[in-house]
Amino acid sequence: MIRFDSVSKRYPNGYEALRGINLHIRRGEMVFITGHSGAGKSTLLRLIPLLERPSNGQVLVAGLNLVRLRRGLIPQLRRRIGMIFQDYRLLHDRTVYDNVALPLVIAGVSPLEIGRRVRAALDKVGLLDRERVYPVTLSGGEQQRVGIARAEVSRPPILVADEPTGNLDPALSWEIMQLFRDFQRVGVTVVIASHDIGLIERLGQRVITLERGRLVDDIPAEAA
C-alpha cells in the first residue's frame, strides 16, 4: 500500500531529515513510527500525502508514484489518505457536524449521503450527541475523536496520524488507539507516529524506529 525506495529528504536549509529509507507497508497493516524528537517521524509521514516531496528515491502510495504525480492529481491522492494531527486542525467556526462533513463536501457527495455518513462516523467515535456543538466546547480527547471521524468519514484506504495522542492522558490515548485498531481490522492501512513507547508496546503492532533520519529498527507485529 505504501512503499519507500531509498528515500531521502533534504529541507531547503540543507538539513537531511531522512536518509535512504526503504519501507514497505502492506494493505491493512498498522504501523507505528517512533524515535526521538527530530528523528524524522513527521517528515516521513508528510511524504505520504505529498505535503513534502522527497529529494531522492521513490514513494508509492495506493499504486500512485508520487514522484511523477502531477500537481493536479494531488487532491485525488489526499482523498485516499485520512490525516490526523496532534493539534486536531479542526475549523473552529464550524460545528462538529460541518467539520466531519467537510471531506465529503469537497468530494462532491450528495447532501443526503453526507448526513448518513457523517452520523455513522460520529457514532463510531461516540460523539453522535455532539454534532451541533462547536469544537472549542469539547475536551482534547473529544476534539481528537472529531479529527478521527473527519479523517475516516470518506472511508480512505489509508489513515496517517502524527502523534494523535500527544496531548492526551494515558486512558484517553488507549481509547484513541483502540479506534485505530478498529479501522485496521476492517482493512484500513494505519500509520501512526508516536513516541509513547509504553503504549505502542502494549498494542503489539509493527514498530519502525527512526534515528537521525535513518531507519534503524523494524519490529514486526506480534503474532496474535
Binding site: 500525502p49 505535503l51 493536479g72 494531488i74 487532491p75 485525488q76 491522492l77 489526499r78 482523498r79 490525516m83 486542525r89 475549523l91 467537510l102 471531506p103 469537497i106 468530494a107 473527519r150
Partner: peptide, 15 residues
C-alpha cells in the same frame, strides 16, 4: 487556516 485544511482534505484548486 480553513483553506489549508481544505487542501489537506483533498480540495481541488477549483473547489
Amino acid at each position: 487556516e480553513e483553506l489549508v485544511i481544505i487542501k489537506l482534505l483533498g480540495g481541488t484548486d477549483a473547489f
